[in-house]
Design a binder for these strands. Sequence first.
DNA 1: CTGAAAGCGCTTACAG
DNA 2: CTGAAAGCGCTTACAG
Lengths: 357, 357
Amino acid sequence: MPHRRTSSPSASAASGDGSVTLQMVAQAAGVSASTVSRILNGTAVVSEDKKQAVDEAIARLGFVPNPMARGLAGGRTLSVGVVTQSIDSPFYGVALRGIEDELDRAGYTPMFVSGHWNASEEARCIEMLRSRRVDGIIVLTGRLSDAALKQTAKALPVVATGRRLKAPNLFSLDFDNFEGARLATQHLISLGHQRIAFIAGNTEHPDANERLRGYRAALEAAGIAFKPELVAPGLFHEESGMLAAERLLDTRQRFTALFAANDQMALGACLALQRHSLRVPQDVSVMGFDDLSMSRYSIPPLSTVHHPAYELGQGAACAMLCMLRGEKPVFELPHPRVVVRESTASPAGAHAASSRA
Amino acid sequence: MPHRRTSSPSASAASGDGSVTLQMVAQAAGVSASTVSRILNGTAVVSEDKKQAVDEAIARLGFVPNPMARGLAGGRTLSVGVVTQSIDSPFYGVALRGIEDELDRAGYTPMFVSGHWNASEEARCIEMLRSRRVDGIIVLTGRLSDAALKQTAKALPVVATGRRLKAPNLFSLDFDNFEGARLATQHLISLGHQRIAFIAGNTEHPDANERLRGYRAALEAAGIAFKPELVAPGLFHEESGMLAAERLLDTRQRFTALFAANDQMALGACLALQRHSLRVPQDVSVMGFDDLSMSRYSIPPLSTVHHPAYELGQGAACAMLCMLRGEKPVFELPHPRVVVRESTASPAGAHAASSRA
DNA sequence: CTGAAAGCGCTTACAG
DNA sequence: CTGAAAGCGCTTACAG
């Protein structure tokens, strides 16, 4: 018999460790490999005694199925791809934790990749995940077109956050950013503020636009005119918030409150205010958005709107699990709610933001 | 011929998509599968013309090798497992980014799992990663015993951070926490502080102990007695820093400076100080450790010691890549350095921390 | 330099 | 309910 590999244990390429195979379990239990497989996957009814024998053998030998073989043969890998934008985002990090926890509970493993807010990178991520044969893909917001998402949903289940999209094999869940921003602005208005500046997020970011809309809506509902001079562009990070606040101050527009489209920018803005000897909240109230865990410890602790990032991740994972089971996902995200801490207060009569030191 | 599967495209289990296989490439190029494989892996010399034909066919068909099959057959998956402690840690997140970037450049994919600072969970993570046949494992600090790490290094290459460990097939790289803390304390001393409080990190955490040691060493080198009453335990997060500072204040021990074993605790401490009407740095200087990106925007911007998290991740990945290539990794982490911002200053003559409002 | 063949560890029609 | 067999898409000795 030519061309035969040596049968020494080390000849096996994939089992670098002397791992136990399904075949060995079958032999130990005195049944066929098929039967073991069926028990493993619950894919057919098996007589109780054989099941017992197999379970015992699995336990005794410490058998762990090889996911690669499983994936190759069965077409599933028990893993789900997660394209996030940056693996170290303080906001999305929490969502990743939610995904991880939820998936873990069902025996699935997340595979995290970063798209860096770039459609073509996100597309590459998806290609990569598909080549690794993930069973489904979760896309956290990002810049991929809806069409691209629908397209990949033709091949495998996808759940996307930050959009409202109806398509077969695709579930989307979106936090109500408009409502959150509306509530935040309303809070400021109810405190007595009339001149409320806004630091916007990246305009290419869908959430950013919704939050701007919410701000405008609250203003208009209160009969306060929207003034473009009072909104400064930002990039969702601390530095841009600081710069935006500085720009606002430079224009000498008067404002008694400042609402930033996320906490990071709000924090940066606070620093700018402080550098101009403006006190928060006595001279200007500051409101953020997201409720990052650190915002509770800023000076002063930041008032903000709570964004349920953990639940968002959990919900996305849960929906994916549903789809994988062939069920129809149903999921509702908590409603936005304002968290009042110490950075907002009623405006002091005479003080105005432009009275700089 | 019985037992034959239908040959319709959809009969293939693994290729849910109509993906191109190596076999198809071989056929299109008029060579054998072996040859295509060899070209793909650079595992043997192949005549130039065949190589051309194959490359052309690969490009034309858009062939992407199936990692699962590759893993099964060849025993490698081009993926490396990364056990981090929490997927949303502000500090480790940056390290993960470093790993991701470095690995990506070499065509490898990281697989992130969280050990939650728990030895048995970390062990489970490693099992899981091994069952997925990762080519190597990077362990970011954690609580796993050195012995356990050495044990897994017998099966596949491992690189570990936060330890100094010599073992075959294992590379470790550690930031000099002792030196960093020594430098930080020295900075405070050079400013004129004599009564320097310390908020320690979790005592089960190796870094925490090194930082405490560095603090003591600097004190003693300056002829300042170490006073246990001046050190309060913390847990490395904001809240514990706040509580620790409060406890310190409650004891009515006098101190003009406060050094926290990480930035998060320093930030929490600042809030406590502020609540007691103590100004930073006029009444008490505050020093952190890690140099999180947000610390640059705290109020006041935090003086701290820079911890090169990104480089740590990059270095770990780089070392892993070396080992995978069969080379011996060499890597040096940057030395600790103090970043002076605005939370530290010389003590004001008469003022003392315990003179509370 | 190159191909035919066996094998990686599973899953799943097929045929009892 | 259960087993024998083929096949998933690759890799790698073996033998030219």
